[in-house]
Computed example of a mutant assay.
Amino acid sequence: MATQFSLAHLAVLDCPPVAMIHIAQRTGYDFVSLRLTAVTPTEPVYALQNDPAQRREVKALLNDSTVQVLDVELARMPPELEPETYAAVLDTAAELGARHVLTQLPDLDRERATERFARLCDMARPLGLTIDLESPTWTATPDLHAAAQVLWAVDRPNAGIVVDTLHFDRSHDSVDMLRALPRGWFHYAQVCDAPAQIPETTEGLIFAARSERFPPGEGDIDIRRILAALPAIPYSLEIPNDTLSAQLGPEGWARRCIESARRYLKR
Rank of each mutant, 00 (worst) to 15 (best):
L227K: 10
A19R: 14
P240R: 01
E200N: 12
G184C: 04
G219C: 08
D222L: 12
I239K: 09
R26I: 11
K266F: 11
I233Q: 04
A2G: 07
T42F: 04
R116A: 09
L34S: 03
S236Q: 02
D173I: 08
T92A: 03
R116K: 08
D30I: 10
A53M: 01
A24Q: 03
L178G: 05
I131M: 03
L102N: 03
D220Q: 13
E57I: 02
R156E: 13
A196S: 12
H145D: 14
L248A: 06
L10W: 15
L237I: 01
M20S: 11
V39T: 12
R110V: 04
D164H: 02
L151Y: 06
A2W: 07
H187G: 07
L108D: 15
S135R: 08
L102F: 02
L10T: 10
L102K: 01
A47Q: 00
Q149G: 07
R179K: 06
I131S: 02
T243S: 10
E200V: 13
G204A: 00
L237A: 06
S135A: 14
L166V: 08
T130G: 13
P142M: 10
A147W: 02
A8N: 14
K59Y: 11
I21T: 00
L205M: 10
I131A: 06
I233G: 01
A124G: 10
Q25R: 05
D222F: 13
V89P: 02
R267L: 09
V18T: 12
A229N: 06
S260M: 10
T27W: 03
N241D: 07
L227Q: 15
I239N: 02
V12Y: 06
S171V: 06
H167V: 12
P216L: 02
E218Y: 09
P106W: 08
Q49C: 11
T137A: 15
M77K: 05
R224C: 06
Q190C: 03
A153T: 09
H9W: 13
L10I: 15
I206Q: 04
W253Q: 04
T201N: 06
R225E: 15
D91K: 07
A254E: 05
R256M: 02
P106Y: 09
R210N: 07
A228D: 15
A8S: 15
A229P: 14
A93F: 09
V150I: 12
R26Y: 03
I258C: 05
T165Q: 10
L244D: 11
I223K: 06
N63D: 03
P157C: 09
M177D: 00
G97F: 09
P234H: 07
A53P: 00
V12R: 15
L265W: 14
L108Y: 12
C257K: 09
E82N: 12
A93T: 10
D176S: 04
A113Y: 01
A124K: 05
V89K: 00
L248Q: 02
P17F: 09
